[in-house]
Design a protein around this nucleic acid. Structure first.
Lengths: 237, 237
DNA sequence: AATTTAATCGTACAGCGTACGAGTCAATCT
DNA sequence: AGATTGACTCGTACGCTGTACGATTAAATT
């Protein structure tokens, strides 16, 4: 009889066991595990994008049957969530000794997020598609903690968190939507040039052509941080 | 023989003809038209979200066969594009008489975009999903035109356009991802309260609970506009 | 009257996520 | 030792999707 249980909690607890048991078979058919599934999912997402991740193809890459995945994972959505979580980890410095350096902490954190999302462009569009859950909240909490420790008043924390988060999300999503076909860099550049021709202001500002994305991102971020600097604006409005 | 032509250009030219010919039948089976298709698609998207728009369901609502849509439209993607375009029209004031009022022009424009996207939450996530095309460029051009006319130097235009666009996109996408299940407002509030409990900083800042979304949006926007104000920063860096 | 064009729809197909149940193998318990 | 259990894998099957194709009809044009 032996029907499968998948309460999404029992699965998680088995992960460690399996991954400890046998990690590096020479090759051939290593056993399935949540870790391996997630890692391969990230690979596949990097290579083929959000629409390229199909359960069957993921199983093929793992050398497993399609339905075997459903023992470790409830459904495809969970694969997305796990892949997101695996990719968006912040491992940078957490707090400068001097509270005055709060800016550099925040900038580091946000630049790191941005870099991670751009390294895996699907993550940005996934983050914007899914309703807010632990994935997002963990990051908001971390950002808030840094801001708070840096001296941002509780009354301003709400605005500070949202402003910065929104800006980073928007900048990353927009930027990510450009590099969709990096296959042919020259052709992409030519396409942008052709597009620009019909939009005088865009062309004049060279908006699409020689955008220094990192620099532009940094400048807008600085404007926000100027406004949010502790002591600059106290109280509410 | 009579195979169908659909060069995506001949279709567009027939739209006006059809829509003029007969707009308001009492009811029953009004003839298909691009206008009717797009309008119904927007309805369906509003009601069911991005994943709720299926060609068959759209055809059902129109009282037509599923395949009839493909005479007016090349594929489903085009339905998305047309719906986006139909929704994101700016009809606000275009330029204040005094160039000093540039801020109010910009704020009006951006708030209008934000309101449109929030009225149709699918639009935000669609905008972020599609590579940049006329949909986005038309809007960037308008924003740039307003900024330029307001006195922003050409050298600063690039940063100004991107900063504002990114901020609006991020704020709207984030906000939109909250109101996904507006069915039960009380339950949603309770869910947020429960979520907040595990995140001290989020809870302390009441990030999820009584966010004044419009006010928060406006404040971050003001910070950006402060930094971008003409005369504030000239040259590049 | 003959022929072309615009428009609609029924059928069909490949691909998707996944429910279901049957199978394997090792550990555990009499 | 024999029986039983639970973890895990996989083949088949189902319903749903977007859409290619061809037949059909109605209107416009010649």
């Amino acid at each position: 009889m032996a029907a499968k249980r998948s309460s999404a909690q029992s699965n998680r607890s088995q992960r460690k066991n399996v991954s400890l048991q046998s990690v590096q078979e020479p090759h051939g058919d290593p056993p399935l595990s949540l870790d391996r599934i997630v890692a391969t999912a990230v690979e596949l997402l990097d290579a083929e994008g959000v629409d390229g991740l199909k359960m069957r193809r993921l199983a093929d890459r793992l050398g497993a049957g399609a339905m075997s995945l459903y023992w470790h994972v409830d459904n495809k959505e969970e694969v997305f969530d796990l892949a997101l979580d695996a990719v968006l980890e912040y491992r940078g410095p957490l707090q400068a000794d001097e509270p005055e350096d709060w800016r550099s902490d925040v900038v580091h954190l946000l630049q790191d997020w941005r870099a991670s999302m751009l390294r895996h462009p699907w993550s940005a569009s996934l983050l914007s598609r899914r309703a807010l859950g632990p994935n997002i909240l963990n990051r908001l909490e971390l950002l808030g903690k840094i801001l708070s420790r840096a001296g941002v008043a509780d009354a301003d924390l709400n605005v500070a968190i949202w402003s910065l988060w929104n800006y980073v999300m928007g900048a990353t999503i927009t930027r990510a939507s450009f590099g969709l076909s990096d296959d042919d860099q020259a052709a992409a550049q030519q396409r942008l040039t052709r597009l620009s021709e019909h939009y005088p202001t865009i062309e004049r500002s060279r908006l699409l052509l020689d955008s220094d994305w990192d620099g532009t991102f940094r400048k807008g971020l600085d404007f926000l941080l100027d406004g949010l600097s502790p002591g600059q604006n106290s109280g509410s409005r």
